[in-house]
């Protein structure tokens, strides 16, 4: 098992936190994991991305060019990175503010993450909605483990724990209900 996941969006959309949640959940499953953020001048101008590798073997470089999975939280991310996704890979995008462009050879899934997030209580939880949805599409991590780590990752923002758990659940259930392409 090995997944190279690129998470990309605006600053403030919880891009880094989404990566950390996946990473901590991978630790719970005794998997190897690396997390690599964009930093420095790359972060100026309001875009952010992080790269997460989850594997059952030791990981070499935490950096990569071609992800297996792209989580695209905004249009710019889709336009910039969807062409890099490996053949047969997955693109999950936030259909609330992003339209799927033309990409071939990859599986593209949209979810209105902003609307769902607002419904569960905070627009800020759109990142968890999309993580939940991804894990329904590609169950490389046990969703229960992700619930567990939300309590740890958000230990300093207790009021967000339940919202994020609900967001994760809604995303996951959205996956259950919709039929995949």
């Amino acid at each position: 098992m090995k997944r190279k996941i690129l998470i990309s969006g605006f600053g403030g959309q919880g891009i880094m936190v989404a990566g950390i949640v996946l990473g901590e959940a991978a630790i719970k499953e005794n998997l190897e994991v690396t997390f690599f953020p964009s930093y420095g001048a790359e972060m100026r101008g309001g875009t952010a991305n992080c790269k997460v590798i989850i594997s059952n073997e030791k990981i070499g470089s935490p950096n990569f060019k071609n992800p297996d999975v792209l989580i695209s939280m905004n249009q710019q991310s889709f336009d910039r990175f969807s062409k890099d996704v490996k053949k047969g890979g997955i693109v999950v995008f936030n259909s609330s503010i992003c339209k799927a462009g033309n990409v071939s050879g990859v599986n593209v899934y949209g979810i209105p993450a902003n609307e769902i997030a607002e419904k569960v209580g905070s627009l800020k939880s759109a990142n968890m909605v999309i993580i939940g949805y991804l894990l329904k599409i590609d169950g490389f991590l046990d969703i229960e483990k992700v619930y567990d780590v939300i309590g740890i990752v958000f230990s300093k923002k207790k009021e967000f724990i339940d919202i994020n758990k609900n967001a994760l659940k809604e995303g996951y259930n959205y996956g259950k209900e919709s039929s995949f392409k």
Binding site: I20, Y39, N63
Partner: peptide, 10 residues
Amino acid sequence: DGVLGQMMEP
């Protein structure tokens, strides 16, 4: 190096 400085892992 910058990669090891910036990256996270367990």
